[in-house]
Amino acid sequence: MTEKQNLIPDKNCISRDIIYDGDIKLGKGNIIHPKAYFKTLGGPIIIGSYNIFEERVVIINERKEPLIIGDYNLFEVGTVIQSSNIGNNCNFQPRATAEDGSKIGDNCIIGPKCYVPTKTELPDNTTLYGANKRRKYIPIKDMQQNLHLRHLSYLHEYLPKHNRCMNL
């Protein structure tokens, strides 16, 4: 694992075609695709390292407390995160929604179009799928992280070639 981590640069690769407002703190090695949207109305947004944010991801913080996102998360197209804390190694599939004040643990998978209702806490290793049927299982963590790391290193190489990016 540690060898592969060296392949990923420490810089953040952020497309210029995004909308952002307020206090946002980024870790290292994050990727943000065009048309993402970040907004704070109260406390700051604190993002960890090695996350991928795809198109039309919306992250809004309306609370006074900071919104904290961990490491190695994948937010796919159209995910909406409203004032909720997120752990590590999570996978938000297209159009997943986390509503006000929810809390999501580590290694969670939120399936397409599923939503986490207000003020719920998802324990670690939870998978939401279909019409919100809840299941619990332990994903093969190494394999998922392997895919994520390769995805990251690919995007770090190819995203700046065709899009105008900021390297921070």
């Binding site: 198109e55 039309r56 197209v77 159209g78 392997n146 895919l147 390769r150 995805h151 290193s153 690919y154």
Partner: peptide
């Protein structure tokens, strides 16, 4: 609508 190509790992190489 959003049209984006799929990705996977094939023979140890990640690509779209």
């Amino acid at each position: 609508s959003i049209i984006r190509p799929p990705y996977k790992i094939y023979k140890g190489v990640f690509s779209y």
